[in-house]
Design a protein around this nucleic acid. Structure first.
Length: 451
RNA sequence: GGCGACGUGGCGGAGUGGCUACGCAGCGGCCUGCAAAGCCGUCUACGCCGGUUCGAUUCCGGCCGUCGCCUCCA
């Protein structure tokens, strides 16, 4: 594969990416907190990093993608209490919904999907290491990370420790040495129905430590790429970075890659604000192909608006690709089109610019469509496969039901006898049934309508 | 208040110190009995004000606007 360059948030610049270990790439992405069905915004990192993995694999690399699931969290306790259910049960149910909803994206599963609740031992060990190194302290059953003990704290998110909000009024403030310190372990409180044993007493892990522990357990500290939404940059990723730096004396990841936010109207979409479009509903309305193409339409670091029109446009794009697929034949593509294919992959190699890559792909489609003789599909399959849309070219089962076929045959007879009024009437009937008749040469074909 | 991102044609959205992005929609044309699909053409932009430059949408400064994070957000 050609040289790949990626934007690294830590460096605030595009840098050449080279795997830590030749031929292998380890990626860790912060996944959802499972207190409800995930929304379309949560789907963006899932799509972005699943596709990035495919691109690496296209380049012959062996990729390990880890996406965690946070199943122990304040929000889960709150949601479970509101629903009168156990938090364990709620988290388990929402985890299965998360898997089912993201499965529908058709981009495969991450290689590992660790649960915080199943990683307590590693988390406790990590906390113990931070206490031993003097970077954390116990306070009435809680354990806090001593932020000012990390000289580089703030380097990732570019914040000055002394200019940070002092976090007044935050829970546990009275027990902290410094308001900036954050919880590694929280002692069990009333209303919380799950807790684990630890040297500091029964309780549960804080949010940030699980990622340091699980990422290290599966990929080893100093792995290649840490990903997630830009909203996690601070404090979550800053804290993860600090924990690993202090406990292990090494940086957690070599590249920090953040996807931009999905915004609804003018406000960022988040579950906290309640302006939610659940992923499964969006998939129901527009289909998985359109959703994937929609995400590819903009560069991954740009904020994108969530609205019907962009999704509808993506759906038209899907139709155009299917249409192109009907014209193509099996086999290699014309050499003259190769530069467009190469531009597609070169765009992906330059900070994974899917939008620029799609422009090259559309040009390829137009060039193929304008040719008199049928064009081999190999190039387009190669391009679409990387973005998870090669299915659009597969010979779909488009055989019309007998009833529709009869109407079409009758229409053809009417046309042959010059009875165009009758022919148009039959065409309208066929359209009403969801099919389109297309006259071509001396014959005709039947094309399924919109999904 | 602190830190940061962004303002591109009707819409979405790349990119670049001088050369058509691309897609959708519209309009005109080819094709068609008429359509559909496809193709061709067309409409054609870089928030505002300065500066640097032979030349800026692209670099620098200011302003206006939008948005994100500031310890529960992917």
């Amino acid at each position: 594969m050609a040289e790949l360059r990626l934007y690294d948030t830590f460096a605030r610049d595009v840098r050449r990416f080279e795997p830590r270990e030749t031929g292998r790439v380890g990626i860790y992405v912060c996944g959802p907190t499972v207190y409800g069905r995930i929304h379309i915004g949560n789907a963006r990192p899932f799509v972005v990093f699943s596709l990035l993995k495919r691109f690496f694999e296209y380049g012959g690399l062996d990729v390990t993608l880890v996406v965690n699931v946070t199943d122990v969290n304040d929000k889960i306790y709150t949601a479970a209490a509101a629903a009168g259910r156990s938090s364990i049960e709620l988290a388990a149910e929402m985890t299965s919904f998360y898997v089912a909803d993201t499965d529908r994206l058709g981009l495969g599963r991450p290689d590992h999907e660790p649960l915080a609740s199943q990683s307590i031992e590693a988390i406790v060990d990590y906390i113990a290491a931070l206490i031993a190194s003097g970077n954390a302290y116990e306070a009435s059953g809680d354990v806090y990370f001593r932020v000012r003990s990390d000289a580089r704290y703030g380097a990732l998110s570019r914040r000055e420790v002394d200019q940070m909000d002092q976090g007044e009024g935050v829970e546990g403030a009275a027990r902290k040495e410094d308001p900036l310190d954050f919880a590694l372990w929280k002692t069990a409180k009333t209303g919380e129905d799950s807790s684990w044993e630890a040297p500091w007493g029964g309780g549960r892990p804080g949010w940030h430590i699980e990622c340091s522990a699980m990422a290290e357990a599966l990929l080893g500290a100093g792995f290649d790429i840490h990903g997630g939404g830009l909203d996690l940059l601070f404090p979550h990723h800053e804290n993860e970075a600090a924990q690993t730096r202090c406990a292990r004396g090494t940086e957690l990841a070599r590249f920090w890659v953040h996807n931009g936010m999905l915004e609804l109207a003018t406000e960022k979409m988040s579950k906290s604000l309640g302006n939610i479009a659940p992923l499964h509903e969006v998939l129901d309305r527009f289909g998985r192909d359109a959703v994937v193409l929609y995400f590819c339409g903009a560069h991954y670091r740009q904020p994108i608006d969530f609205a019907d029109e962009p999704l509808a446009q993506a759906r038209r794009g899907v139709a155009r690709l299917r249409e192109a697929g009907r014209r193509l034949i099996d086999g290699p593509s014309p050499a003259e089109l190769a530069p467009l294919r190469e531009r597609f992959f070169a765009s992906l190699a330059e900070d994974f610019n899917t939008a620029a890559a799609l422009a090259a792909m559309w040009e390829w489609v137009r060039e193929a469509n304008r040719r008199e003789t049928a064009v081999g599909r190999a190039d387009l399959v190669e391009m679409l496969d990387v973005i998870g849309l090669a299915n659009l070219l597969e010979a779909s089962d488009e055989t019309a039901p007998a009833e529709i076929a009869e109407l079409a045959a009758a229409r053809q007879l009417a046309r042959g006898s010059g009875d165009f009024a009758r022919a148009d009437e039959l065409r309208a009937q066929i359209a009403a049934a969801g099919w389109t008749v297309r006259d071509a040469g001396g014959g005709y074909s039947l094309i399924p309508g919109d999904d």
